[in-house]
Write a protein that binds this DNA or RNA. Structure first.
Length: 424
RNA sequence: GGAGGCGUCGCCUAGUGGUCUAUGGCGCCCGCCUGCUAAGCGGGUUUGGGGUGAUACCCCAUCGCGGGUUCAAAUCCCGCCGCCUCCGCCA
């Protein structure tokens, strides 16, 4: 939810943001009109309600015939209050509906355009030259099957397309990676969290996932609960309806969870292997900071992501995602994409978004100002590890015989130095 | 799944239809007093919104959430949620 007052003050800024995202500008005028109606209706209701309350006190003091007369007189007033209250509630709901449909304001400096209009900020490491190494690289699934690490066939048998079993060294690599990421997060001061992965509609909506991309989300109708696609959702909900004390600096949580995505719009894309699956695990950073610290915290989250990427020793690049490709809640987003040798391109491994005060407004997460009033905080999130990382690790660290060298930083956590083929 | 109890301001708590403008205590904040931080005294202390983009003032809403009854609801009725106790069922 964007700030209604900010929209009233500078509607042009909201129009500009909508334009950058390729979204409807007309909603701005619709919100302004609805807000006007709301305030008028609210004033009308409040005035009559105040009269009713005053009158009620005289009724209470009166008795006998006088009281009968006063009660009779109050009946019409009660009818009016009911009707005006309904009007005010309706106008308010309309403002909420319209305002709720506006995605977060795009931050200054975000590249214009759509999915392909990102700006590359930096490339780290160089793609490995397999020709020089004298062999043709195998893709992650071929390696995974060779190593006894990934079993898509049985995943499909048990659960359908886009489900996998990670087995033996695959399971160990996954758990080791997650443990490593979590250990680093703890070292940086994050509070480790294992959150629930089923959440209420309020939490799903509050984090912005029931807007344009609602069809991406699994829903359990019988229980009115949603399966989260990221622990960002429960971590944002953690402090919902609370007034936080951020005087000691940001509150930072690192969540480990399974994540579920329907991948409804991606039929035929990435159908091979575990690049795009319905279920994966992830370690996610989540920060609550004062609004004015959001941009600085965003840089810190990006820096931490890069530390973990550096540790797994894969080439990657950092991109500044264009306005049209931002999520509903994000004001700015940086992705880190790792080089996938057999695809000859970079694929997203991490994503960090600054949601400024957008999520906090919906979830009622505030802090005290110096004057004693409250103000919404900013929330930010960023990936520290996901199952997809296995793709980049396997492919970039493979050897001619199909074995895979475990990155040094992960070895204590994986418990293996080299993953050896179980068949050839 | 069944039965019962509970849910009031940061915490504890009073409140069984109108004088509730929600009581009292603790904590916290401001002031007074006392020649030390204590005690005592006085005042303040939920959140959201409107008048109004005003630190002052006024108003509305807010007693777990949502409906209803009533001229009038913390209070009565219905539904839901959460916590506790007991029973049943299952691992």
């Amino acid at each position: 939810m964007i700030d209604l007052r900010a929209l009233r003050d500078s509607p042009d800024a909201v129009r500009a943001s909508q334009r950058l995202r390729g979204e409807d500008e007309g909603v701005v005028d619709a919100v302004l009109a609805a807000d006007e109606r709301r305030r008028t209706a609210l004033s009308d209701f409040e005035r009559v309600r105040a009269q009713q309350k005053t009158h009620g006190k005289t009724v209470a003091k009166a008795s006998g015939e006088e009281k009968q007369a006063l009660v009779a007189a109050a009946k019409g007033m009660a009818e009016q209050v009911r009707s005006l209250q309904a009007q005010a509630a309706e106008a308010e709901a309309e403002v909420d509906r319209l305002l709720g449909s506006v995605p977060n304001l795009v931050a200054e400096g975000v590249p214009p355009g759509g999915e392909d209009d990102f700006v590359v900020l930096e490339e780290v490491g160089a793609p490995r030259d397999f020709a020089a190494d004298g062999f043709e690289p195998r893709d992650h699934l071929e390696l995974g099957e060779l190593l006894g690490a990934i079993d898509m066939g049985r995943g499909a048998k048990v659960s359908g397309a886009r489900f996998s079993f990670l087995t033996g060294p695959g399971a160990r690599l996954e758990l080791g990676l997650m443990q490593y990421a979590m250990a680093r997060a703890v070292e940086w001061g994050f509070v480790p969290v294992v959150p629930p992965t089923l959440v209420t509609p309020q939490m799903m909506g509050g984090t912005g996932f029931l807007g344009a991309h609602a069809e991406e989300v699994y829903k359990l109708d019988a229980d009115d609960l949603y399966l989260v696609g990221t622990s960002e959702v429960p971590l944002a909900g953690f402090h919902a309806d609370e007034i936080l004390d951020l005087s000691g600096g940001p509150l930072r949580y690192a969540g480990w969870s399974t994540c579920y995505r329907r991948e409804a719009g991606s039929h035929g894309k990435d159908t091979r292997g575990i690049i795009r699956v319905h279920q994966f695990t992830k370690v996610e950073m989540f920060s609550y900071v004062s609004a004015q610290d959001a941009a600085a915290e965003h840089q810190r989250l990006l820096a931490w992501e890069r530390e973990v990427l550096d540790a797994v020793e894969v080439p990657y690049r950092v991109i500044d995602v264009a306005a049209g490709d931002l999520g509903t809640s994000a004001a700015r987003k940086y992705d880190c994409e790792a080089w996938v040798p057999t695809q000859g391109r970079y694929r997203e491994l991490t994503s960090t978004s600054s949601c400024t005060t957008f999520q906090a407004r919906r979830l009622a997460i505030r802090e005290r100002t110096g004057e004693g009033s409250t103000t919404p905080v900013a929330t930010l999130n960023g990936t520290l590890a996901t199952t997809r990382w296995l793709v980049a690790i396997l492919e970039n660290h493979q050897q001619a015989d199909g074995s895979v060298v475990v990155p040094a930083a992960l070895r204590p956590y994986v418990g293996l130095d080299v993953l050896e083929p179980v068949r050839r």
